[in-house]
Design a protein around this nucleic acid. Sequence first.
DNA 1: CTATGATCATGA
DNA 2: TCATGATCATAG
Length: 214
Amino acid sequence: MKSSSPDSSEALMTLVSTLAGQTLGQLAARASLSIPARATAAKGWIGQLLEYHLGAEAGSKAIPDFPSLGIELKTIPVNALGNPLETTYVTTVNLDSLPGQTWLTSPVYQKLQQVLWVPIEGDPKIPLAARRIGQAILWTPTSEQARVLQQDWQDLVDLILLGNFETLTSQLGTYLHIRPKAAHGKILQTTEHHAQTLPRGFYLRTALTREILK
DNA sequence: CTATGATCATGA
DNA sequence: TCATGATCATAG
């Protein structure tokens, strides 16, 4: 049975706290889902499993997972120490809507206003079904975190708007950076300056998520 | 195709 | 070892 959507952040936190300590195998069984056999086939599967149990209703729409609460759900793989193993995808770099956009109107800012982080054991040595869910954290950027994020975003967007894709490397950005985001390497999109470039996305570095989780 | 959800796999 | 660049699954 699919959970109904929580009607308050308190209800959501109560609900997610009941999942802490459970394994993905237990959650999958309750959702009548099978465990992906291959690791590559599991990408995104954990996130969707959590969406199901928490009653997220946004589906594949470009809105928060809990629209009425303005809360975005993110699962994050962690090691035995509770530190993140991966960067976190935020949103696509949309070349058409960037011009005229400001930090406050940007999808990055809006998505990161309230994030429910659910840490999950991510050590590849642990079988998928045995991985346990940790204690969730409802996060809003601190003023310092927000300041750095805004600086990163502005720097990156400036490069794009100038058409400097050659210098737009993944090394840029303290907390936020830009990397390819596509089904495969042959997809291209057209820039404002009529050049062809790989679709990219905004990602959060582990430097930030490590701060959030500790 | 684009959006969502992410992690894989390789090279530095 | 770990970050970058590439890729995988699903829904619409």
